[in-house]
Amino acid sequence: MSIQHFRVALIPFFAAFCLPVFAHPETLVKVKDAEDQLGARVGYIELDLNSGKILESFRPEERFPMMSTFKVLLCGAVLSRVDAGQEQLGRRIHYSQNDLVEYSPVTEKHLTDGMTVRELCSAAITMSDNTAANLLLTTIGGPKELTAFLHNMGDHVTRLDRWEPELNEAIPNDERDTTMPAAMATTLRKLLTGELLTLASRQQLIDWMEADKVAGPLLRSALPAGWFIADKSGAGERGSRGIIAALGPDGKPSRIVVIYTTGSQATMDERNRQIAEIGASLIKHW
């Protein structure tokens, strides 16, 4: 067993022997301040990774656009098919120029040779490549099948209805392509620590998230040296922004954090800054 596999296998073990965790309302004060600064709703939840206990939450059962955070769930569904012998990570998928959609920095470079399922998941999570996500959605049967996968996990809230990039439209009061912070946090925890996926697939999923290259201005910008984070960000229309993450000190994750916002007129930089400040408060009061 590799060191990384050992780390993920012992996530519940280490967490069980940690000192009790206590909620700190100071972080919620910052979440509410972010709402004021952005002029928009902000949803927040913080779960203990081992027990699933909610440590703090704000608007945990209000719907927010998922945006690209759905790509972690998508690759979880792909990995479940791999575990069941219905898919192979090494299978190569070929596609054409007509398949390319807006923001496809990886797939646009491989029109000639195609990409493997493993490479597509890596591109979808680490670079948020939209064509990679659409190609992977095709392998599982489309958005409705991802929703069905989530329902089978016990998540009857999260739903995907459309493809990239239309799913980022974020129309107010439109339930399409949305989740709730509580539902997303619980589902992410199941994917990373539950028995739904094999140990190898859980490790692969967290490795992809740990290698995320496009979430630097968010929670990662607030992390002290030595902290662990595996995350996936999302951005959408109407001032929408979000991030889902597993993080913790001492090089291992111990909490799940989900943050979503929508309806702001603020710039992307300002949305990023507010999420980073929430992260800084979380870490300060850990």
Rank of each mutant, 00 (worst) to 15 (best):
M1W: 01
S2W: 09
F6H: 08
R7L: 07
I11K: 05
I11F: 11
I11T: 07
L19P: 10
P20A: 05
F22W: 14
F22M: 10
A23T: 04
P25T: 11
V29N: 15
K32P: 01
D33S: 10
E35I: 03
D36T: 15
Q37Y: 15
Q37M: 14
L38P: 07
R41H: 15
G43A: 08
G43L: 00
D48R: 04
G52A: 07
G52K: 06
E56D: 12
E56I: 05
P60S: 13
P60M: 13
P60R: 12
E61T: 13
E61Y: 14
E61C: 08
P65W: 01
M67N: 13
S68K: 00
S68G: 00
G76W: 05
A77G: 08
V78D: 01
L79F: 04
A84H: 12
Q86I: 14
G90I: 11
G90M: 13
G90L: 10
I93W: 03
I93D: 02
Y95L: 08
Y95H: 05
Q97S: 14
Q97I: 13
S104C: 07
V106I: 14
H110F: 11
T116L: 08
E119F: 02
C121H: 00
A123N: 04
A124H: 00
N130E: 01
N130D: 05
N130G: 05
N134Y: 04
L136C: 04
G142T: 07
G142L: 01
P143W: 02
E145N: 15
E145Q: 12
F149T: 08
F149E: 07
L150T: 09
H151D: 09
H151N: 13
G154V: 04
G154F: 04
D155C: 02
T158V: 04
R159C: 06
D161H: 07
W163P: 10
W163H: 09
P165Y: 05
L167N: 07
N168I: 05
E169P: 05
E169L: 13
A170L: 08
N173D: 15
E175P: 15
R176C: 09
D177L: 01
D177R: 01
M180L: 09
P181E: 00
T187H: 05
R189S: 13
K190A: 13
L191A: 06
T193H: 14
T198H: 12
R202M: 07
Q203S: 13
Q203M: 14
Q204E: 14
D207M: 11
M209Y: 00
M209R: 00
A211R: 14
D212A: 04
D212M: 03
K213F: 10
L219T: 03
S221T: 13
P224I: 03
A225P: 15
W227M: 03
S233I: 00
E237A: 15
R241M: 04
I244W: 00
G248R: 02
D250N: 15
G251Q: 11
G251Y: 09
P253V: 09
V257A: 06
I259H: 00
Y260A: 02
A266P: 04
M268K: 06
D269H: 13
N272R: 03
I275E: 01
A276E: 09
E277I: 12
I278L: 10
S281D: 08
